[in-house]
Nucleic acid binder design. Structure first.
Length: 531
DNA sequence: CAGCTGGTTGGACCG
DNA sequence: ACGGTCCAACCAGCT
């Protein structure tokens, strides 16, 4: 019993599968579980009031669960670098534990804290528990590079075997030998923040669909795991982006904050799969967890992963800078009801289906508006409850055909795509109720409805709801050509202009481009030799 | 090595 | 209603 430990919660807001917390409790006299309200976050990113609520609820739940084992949560205000020296002295701390975090800011922050802890003779213990595997290990196994395809990731993971089994949550019994000192003077100082303290307006909250916290996460998990047939048959591409209630688990916000452990989720799924025929990665639920791993690995292994410039896997594209179009997209005013309904759901509820993300991301970038994926990334980062740095950056690059996915001629139609699973546009009517009187024939394209119908529906297009800000069929073709040119520039080929691509000349141009490319390659090689 | 295969989830059109 | 074919042709990884 020779340690006074701080366990530092950042993500990983849970008691289950928390090896760093268990390490803090070992041979421990006094345990101080803390969360730091780090001013870096609100300064460097917009966070919606919905996500602040989720965090506050997750912290409350954590505090309650800690109290059940005779401890509590201390919420500390300030910069980690300034907070720790004070706490180390005040609580006579000898050990600091936390979960490994692979995001760039976190890595830098944690390195500084680790150094400072050493200066105060505080032992630091870090444990991997946010991801299924140790991300650095995956990269090492792949010769120091992040796998750029899913198949490659699977190949690299195969010899590593299944992810570790989750650690048990600590119980009262584990706290028998140690205590969390409790002074009344602590209560105000280390209390869970309110939305008001965080500068948020509770009036702006959306419906309370996904309460934050570990307790909610585990009960949500249990509910879904009971649906064994559904779990075993799960194929992500067959779930619906525009159902009126989510067609997938919506466990992602809980994963983002670590209210649910990926490994706990993995092994619960394995239990359900056991002895049953079931779907497989990439489309299965296990497959979804591996996608998370895939993008986490890329986020660590690829420099400047959340940017285009300086990002070696990202195609360099001459995106336009159209502030009006960006604003229209982010506020759900593009004139395409399917797109605007999705953006409305995102803004009000904080969660949209994965394929809905595809539709709006393609629309913003290579499909229609030709606006940088970094702009979309910022909007998602603000509004999504599950906004996760690596996943957000990776998926935006995927959808904009900037990295991982390259079949840029496959463009989602803002009209046709939604119809596949919602012919009558019920989803659109839910989120854009002013369109609810349009018949199915026009619900995806209300501008095509006759004026008399628009009047009867009580919504004049161009007045009560915007006309489409771009003509999809026109910009789509133009954008595919721009994408093709961006790819051609990347491979060292000549800039293939629109003019050269007309009709019968196509084949000739292709041959020329190939020839140019090989010349460029020869030049590159020659240069290399000289060096 | 040059060529091949496969790639989480496209769209339009045809029968 | 739904499966097949074409569209135009990308890249990463493998052999």
């Amino acid at each position: 019993m020779n340690h006074n430990s701080i366990h530092w919660f950042r993500k990983g807001l849970r008691l289950h599968d928390n090896p760093a917390l268990l390490a803090a409790m070992k041979d421990c006299a006094e345990l101080y579980p803390i969360f730091i309200l780090d001013p870096w976050f609100p300064k460097n990113m917009q966070v919606s009031v919905n996500r602040w609520r989720f965090l506050v609820e997750a912290l409350k739940d954590l505090d309650e669960n800690l109290k059940k084992i005779n401890s509590r949560l201390f919420v500390v205000r300030g910069k980690p670098a300034e907070v720790f020296p004070v706490l180390f002295k005040k609580w006579k701390v000898t050990r600091l534990t936390f979960e490994v975090d692979t995001e760039p800011y976190s890595k830098q922050r944690d390195a500084e804290v680790e150094k400072m802890a050493a200066e105060h003779s505080v032992q630091v213990i870090q444990k991997v528990s946010n991801t299924l595997y140790d991300i650095d290990r995956i990269i090492a196994e792949n010769n120091g590079k992040a796998p750029l395809t899913y198949v490659r990731l699977q190949t690299v993971l195969a010899p590593l075997g299944s992810p570790k089994r989750p650690a048990q949550a600590p119980t009262k019994n584990d706290m028998k030998e140690c205590s969390t000192p409790w002074k009344s003077s602590y209560d105000g100082k280390y209390s869970i923040p309110t939305l008001e303290e965080l500068g948020q307006d509770p009036e702006k909250l959306g419906p309370h669909l996904y309460p934050g916290g570990e307790t909610e996460a585990l009960s949500r998990l249990e509910i879904y795991m009971k649906r064994t047939a559904w779990v075993c048959n799960f194929q992500k591409p067959e779930t619906e982006p525009n159902s009126l209630t989510p067609s997938t688990t919506v466990l992602s916000p809980y994963m983002k904050f670590g209210c649910l452990s990926a490994r706990t989720f993995w092994w619960k799924l394995a239990d359900v799969y056991h002895g049953r025929k079931h779907s497989h990665p990439p489309v299965s639920l296990h497959g979804q967890l591996l996608w998370r791993e895939f993008f986490y690995t890329a986020g660590v292994g690829v420099p400047n992963f959340n940017k285009m410039e300086g990002n070696p896997v990202c195609v360099q594209v001459d995106w336009d800078n159209n502030k009006e179009h960006l604003k229209a997209w982010s506020e759900g005013r593009t004139g395409y009801p399917f797109i605007d309904a999705i953006m409305t759901q995102l803004r009000t509820e904080g969660w949209i289906h994965h394929l809905a993300r595809h539709a709006v991301a393609c629309f913003l970038t290579r499909g229609d508006l030709w606006i940088s994926w970094e702009e979309g990334q910022k909007v998602f980062e603000e509004l999504l409850l599950d906004a996760d740095w690596s996943l957000n950056a990776g998926n935006w690059q995927w959808l904009s055909a900037s990295a991982f996915f390259h079949q840029f001629f496959r463009v989602y139609s803002p009209v046709a795509f939604g119809k596949k699973t919602d012919k009558n546009g019920e989803y659109i009517k839910k989120y854009l109720p002013f369109l609810k009187k349009f018949p199915a024939e026009y619900i995806y394209e209300p501008w095509k409805a006759p004026r008399s119908l628009q009047e009867r529906a009580g919504c004049i297009i161009g007045k009560d709801y915007p006309k489409p800000i771009v003509e999809h069929e026109v910009v789509r073709k133009k954008n595919i050509q721009r994408m093709k040119a961006a790819y051609a520039r990347r491979s060292g080929s000549v800039d293939v202009g629109d003019k050269d691509l007309e009709g019968s000349k196509k084949k000739g141009v292709k041959r020329n481009a190939a020839k140019e490319q090989s010349v460029a390659d020869l030049l590159k090689k020659a240069k290399f030799k000289k060096d």
